[in-house]
Nucleic acid binder design. Structure first.
Lengths: 334, 334
DNA sequence: TTGTATGCGTTATCAC
DNA sequence: GTGATAACGCATACAA
């Protein structure tokens, strides 16, 4: 089972065997043959622990992301991300270990999750940070492994990062609502403690102005909690403030809003046009089918894995990749 | 950073230090104090690689599951499972690594995914097997690590296993359709190469008889592929065969069927009652809201992790746990 | 082109 | 109660 065993079988040294298997030095064809044969015969598999101990690499990267009890849908987003990572890693001999932390904006918990990985254990961490707050950076840097930030940016960070063009997504959503004839377009957004919230908010504002409207605070609600109930409450409030269009930049809030509008008898999109965020198959099935801003979750994972692999190869570059968003044109906007 | 360093600092031997940290032999209070203090001071973290090499355990378990391009929804199911596993593991110092394989019923791929884990690396594997075929068992047994089968059973297997009471789920769904007055209830089911397909099929048959109907082959379609398109085709066919109720035991097929029925102008549930499988929030939003059989995905992961941990503690028992299913009563059944 | 020998950080077996 | 020290399996610097 070990390299030593192969050395015995072939009469060669462990050094030669090792070099045939992974090393870089020249080995005669005859020796190589012998080693390979023996290896096959005993179904040799390198002992990862020994390799790790020797090389100080684990061939493992971690994905750390937030989860929220009240929002299963958000978790599903990360499944697409995870599969994108796996897709890329499939070409390599890297593994991915998964860790999650509670409440999506609780930085203490996110750091605790990362702490656990600190046992000089993973080679790199793909992290969905809990906030834009740059304080966490110093802690992360201390960990000593490469980081790639995913989905959310951190202010003034020089960490590599992949995210979506949320600003554009929001901009296009609002513009589309305007083009559909909506005049009073509200935003039900996520908290601005995370960059996605801020970007979408910015996109909203820019679009409002570019469409010739005046920006008004009263048409903006930035939600504290992400749940169906919160979506319902905010939608009702928004309605009271007189909107005829809503861009809801979070999919669980969208569900709540949709439910509320329906139970209030508000016609979508005739009375109020709505555009949500993220793309799920079920959105085709509701009446009316939901127009949304789509992010490339799978691709995001894939790219993050690529960046990480590059870092692990020793390229110490800080890359920022922003993936495109697009509108999935269905029927709810007008 | 190492135990040796602590030994130097305290003037004790590495043996004593090690025993303070993890061992079981008696150490004087004074020594213990010293070691603990020093450990804190240098922020000591055990080197997992070294521990692994020495103890032959990695403190890591793997989740291996199938993914299908055409069915993102099915993947989301495994996210719930994964979070259940994580929940349990959070109490321990185990990690979970994730691996997926293509086409859900391709056993060659599933074995290849497992192969990769074989590098005497993970302590245990939670596997969603690709089929009921017991042939794979011999291969799995050779791997030499504990297995827990999840969601799907393998014929004649003595591996531990957690799954859902699919038979009951199907039985109740069909019974509910009958109680709602449906007389010709069809089944659009998954392939019977996996145990879930078989169980749901069995539940369907039993319910049909118990409700006083004659079982007829023409009311049963067992799908080969899982996709929206396949769901559409099968629903249309089922309609041609004259059913007034459908139990569709897979959620992507349900989506297809729902879409098809809608575009054909068939009224749900008046013309045809339908009941689907699995529970997603979006099902509340469609018109009519979809009645389904709900599985406890999260719980399934949690229990699987518990069983695995028990095995890893040395309890060599084979457990079969079947989690309850329940009907989520909404509006589509009648 | 090949072999020898060392050490990665632990745990565990001795001996004291 | 405690301390040497030998593995665990591998990669590699140093010799030859």
């Amino acid at each position: 089972m070990t390299i030593k065993k192969i050395a015995e079988m072939t009469g060669l040294s462990t050094a030669t065997v090792s070099h045939v298997l992974h090393g870089k030095r020249k080995v005669s064809d005859i020796s190589r043959e012998k080693v390979l044969l023996a290896a096959r015969e005993i179904d040799y598999r390198p002992n990862l622990a020994a390799q790790m101990l020797r090389t100080q690499k684990s061939n493992t990267i971690a994905l750390v992301f937030p989860t929220e009890e009240s929002n299963r849908n958000a978790n599903y987003f990360y499944m697409d991300v995870l599969l994108g990572i796996r897709k890329k890693l499939w070409e390599t001999d890297y593994f991915v270990i998964v860790s999650n932390y509670g409440a999506s904006t609780d930085s203490e918990r996110s750091l605790r999750a990362v702490e656990l990985l600190k046992k000089q254990w993973v080679d790199g961490i793909i992290l969905v940070p809990s906030s834009r707050n740059p304080n966490q950076l110093t802690v992360l840097r201390e960990i000593g492994v490469p980081f790639v930030l995913l989905d959310r940016r951190v202010d003034g960070s020089d960490f590599s990062c992949v995210d979506s063009d949320n600003e554009k997504g929001a901009y296009e959503a609002v513009s589309l609502l305007a083009r559909a004839g909506k005049k009073k377009i509200g935003l039900i957004g996520g908290g601005i403690r995370v960059s996605t919230g801020t970007s979408r908010y910015n996109g909203y504002q820019r679009a409002i102005r570019d469409c010739g409207f005046d920006y008004e605070d009263k048409y903006v609600i930035l939600a504290e909690t992400y749940s169906i109930e919160s979506g319902r409450i905010n939608a009702r409030e928004m309605l009271n403030r007189g909107v005829d269009g809503m861009f809801i930049s979070d999919n669980v809030l969208t569900m709540g809003a949709f439910l509320e509008l329906n139970s209030l008898g508000v016609k979508i999109p005739a009375d109020v046009g709505i555009i949500g965020y993220d793309d799920f198959d079920w959105m085709n099935m509701i009446a009316p089918p939901l127009t949304t801003v789509k992010q490339q979750a799978y691709q995001m994972g894939y790219v993050a894995a690529e960046m990480m692999l590059r870092k692990l190869k020793g390229m110490d570059v800080s890359e920022k990749v922003m993936l495109d968003t697009s509108i999935v044109m269905r029927k709810s906007h007008g």
